[in-house]
């Protein structure tokens, strides 16, 4: 058994809303009862539609969203933290060890800072380097890793294309020497020809440095190509999780199957045979009882509407939450 870097045990993230009239205060149940384990040095993919709670889960693992129930445990061999009740001093240290890369490289970089200052800021804020020379050396090191040259460091973000900006964001996330990086839709805003480049760069960083990635995306084909483990999320819950190849070879959950078949095929002769999902993702304020997917599932039965499916092992290393996974396979 290899080491687990970060794990969520029965994690729930709830956002209370303001009261409407009398009665109970409505709550957005963004994540509910999540159990995942991310192995050290893995590239862990999290996929789902918008509104499924992927981003919230990623943020909870960075202690950037409230942990309402359950716990998130981080262990990298040097420190052990339980993020739910982490002390302020430890949180500062955790921020150095866990970093985030955002979706939109146009919004994530300050237009008034040079690229050098953007990359150097975490070093200065966290007090990692003690002199300007040291900072500059470190910035140059990281910049060259992300294929940015000295000339680039003097410029402002507006002078860069989307792909280059995303490489700047990656450099900033790497500069503090993190062990864990959450990449939230980091290629969604990029053109395909550039997207491949950024994906290859992330994979290379992961292989060279052993950083553990939580890669959040709505695009299963991107996940399939970059991640070695995939978790599929629907309406605040993980419905299926398995090593990438296993997930594609023996898809067990109807939602995963629907997601897969909704990807438009590149073959013009294979048209319109996708298994279509009806309707849209329900509101996380009043999730459907029983299996949360029952309102859209083509195979839903009485039991799915009443009984919450158990999170169980389907085959070795492959977990699923569906009453009828075996019958449907």
């Amino acid at each position: 058994m290899s080491d687990i870097l970060i794990r969520a045990n029965n994690l729930s993230v709830h956002f209370p809303l303001s009261r409407v009239g009398f009665g109970e205060r409505p709550v957005v149940r963004a994540c509910e009862g999540i159990n995942i384990e991310i192995e050290k040095g893995s590239f862990f993919g999290l996929v789902g539609e918008s509104g499924s709670g992927k981003t919230t889960l990623g943020r909870a693992m960075l202690k950037a969203a409230p942990i309402s129930h359950g716990e998130v445990l981080y262990t990298d061999g040097e420190v052990d933290y339980s993020l739910g009740d982490i002390r302020a001093a430890d949180l500062k240290e955790y921020r150095r060890r866990a970093q985030l890369i955002f979706q939109d490289p146009y919004a994530a970089l300050s237009p008034r800072m040079t690229v050098r200052d953007i990359i150097a800021e975490p070093l200065e804020v966290m007090g990692i380097t003690s002199s300007r020379e040291e900072t500059d050396t470190r910035v140059r090191e990281i910049a060259s890793l992300c294929r940015l040259n000295l000339e680039h460091l003097r410029r402002f973000p507006h002078a860069f294309s989307g792909g280059q900006r995303q490489r700047i964001s990656i450099a900033r996330a790497l500069v503090s020497g993190p062990k864990f990086i959450v990449a939230d839709e980091s290629v969604a805003a990029l053109d395909v020809s550039i997207q491949a480049d950024v994906l290859n760069l992330l994979n290379k960083i992961q292989q060279d440095s052993g950083i553990t990635f939580l890669f959040i995306s709505h695009d299963l084909s991107v996940i399939a190509h970059t991640c070695d483990f995939v978790a599929v999320m629907y309406l605040g819950q993980i419905v299926e999780a398995a090593p990438t190849r296993k997930l594609f070879a023996e898809t067990a959950h109807p939602y995963t199957r629907a997601l897969l078949s909704a990807i438009p095929s590149l073959d013009p002769d294979v048209r319109g045979n996708a298994q279509k999902l009806e309707g849209e993702i329900p509101s996380p304020i009043n999730p459907p009882p029983g299996c949360r997917f029952n309102t859209r599932c083509p195979h839903a039965q009485e039991r799915c509407r009443n009984e919450v499916p158990e999170w169980r092992e389907y085959s070795t290393g492959h977990h699923v939450a569906c009453h009828f996974a075996e019958e449907l396979a």
Partner: peptide, 24 residues
């Protein structure tokens, strides 16, 4: 061809992703 090669394909997970080099 470059656009097609840079697309992740589901039926061949081992195929490398080849970006079109450089920027527009």
């Amino acid at each position: 061809r470059g656009l097609l090669n840079s697309l992740p394909k589901l039926d061949d997970l081992d195929a490398p992703l080849t970006p079109v080099p450089g920027d527009i």
